[in-house]
Structures are given as C-alpha cells and as structure tokens.
C-alpha cells in the first residue's frame, strides 16, 4: 500500500523504457538487413491489392 501511494506521487516506470529499447533494437536490426529499401520498393509502386483491383 505504501509503495502504491509512493507510485501515485510519481515513480519512474521502467516498462516504457524497456519497450523503447527493444523496439529501437528491432528497428536497427531490420534496417541493417536492408529492409528499408524493400519497404521503399513497395511504397513506390501502386499496390493494386491495396486499392482493391489487384
């Protein structure tokens, strides 16, 4: 209960920092493997499936 009250006044939460770190690492690994060029390649084409005629 005491720790609950302390949390109510403001105690830094670790979870968002852990998630941020993990997500940044995932992004770096993906970027290092060359994925952004694949993403660009798709994004530069009109995706016929996306617009419902492919």
């Amino acid at each position: 209960m005491a720790s609950e009250r302390k949390k109510g006044r403001g105690q830094i939460r670790k979870a968002p920092f852990i998630l941020l770190t993990v997500s940044t690492l995932l992004w770096i690994v993906g970027a290092a493997s060359g994925e952004p060029s694949r993403v660009l390649e798709q994004a530069w084409q009109v995706c016929l499936s996306c617009i419902g005629i492919g």
């Binding site: 968002p16 998630l19 941020l20 993906g30 493997s33 994925e35 694949r38 993403v39």
Partner: peptide, 19 residues
C-alpha cells in the same frame, strides 16, 4: 539470401507504441 522479417516495421511501430 535476404533476411527480411519486418523487423524495421515492427520496430518503428514499437517505438511509436512505447511512447
């Protein structure tokens, strides 16, 4: 031999979601 698993997309979404 291209190791594309969507990690850059999941990572970008994860950063936005974590914030």
């Amino acid at each position: 031999n291209q190791y594309f698993f969507g990690l850059s997309v999941i990572g970008a979404l994860g950063v936005l979601g974590a914030m």
